[in-house]
């Protein structure tokens, strides 16, 4: 049956993929910082350059956990109370990408503004 052959081929392809994809490509040398304080993101707007992967370090200074949530960025992560956590973003084209704190969506709102930065490399 050729379904078995297909299964074998897919397995072999995956084997090769593992070899290629397991190479660690450390993402970002650009690090940006965000603070959660009184259930508000500070700053509420982060500007980053287009088509670059960046590292976003979020420090939750509140006594309650918060969940960084963004459909636009395809990211969802719980940041425990008093802890720092890292989210990797991009590479993405220019545009506005909104995010919220899912536990406090009224106050915890922000956006990542991806645009050409004047002082960017």
């Amino acid at each position: 049956m050729w379904s078995n052959l297909l299964n074998k081929i897919l397995t072999q392809l995956l084997l090769v993929s593992f070899l290629i994809l397991s190479t660690e490509i450390e993402a970002a040398d650009n690090t940006y910082y965000l603070v959660i304080e009184n259930h508000v993101f500070k700053p509420s707007v982060i500007e980053i350059p287009p088509n670059k992967k960046v590292k976003l370090v979020i420090h939750n200074k509140d006594k309650l956990p918060e969940e960084f949530d963004s459909f636009d960025l395809n990211r969802e992560k719980v940041i425990f109370a008093g802890k720092k956590s890292t989210i990797y973003i991009g590479p993405l084209p220019a545009g506005e990408y909104y995010f919220i704190g899912e536990y406090h969506p009224v106050s915890a709102q922000g956006k990542v503004l991806i645009k050409e930065l004047k002082n960017a490399d």
């Binding site: 078995n4 593992f18 397991s22």
Partner: peptide, 21 residues
Amino acid sequence: MSKLIPLMLIMLLICSYSTAT
């Protein structure tokens, strides 16, 4: 992650050459 690569490869090789079932 890199420490897991040999484990991944061994498991994939085992199953790549197992008989069809």
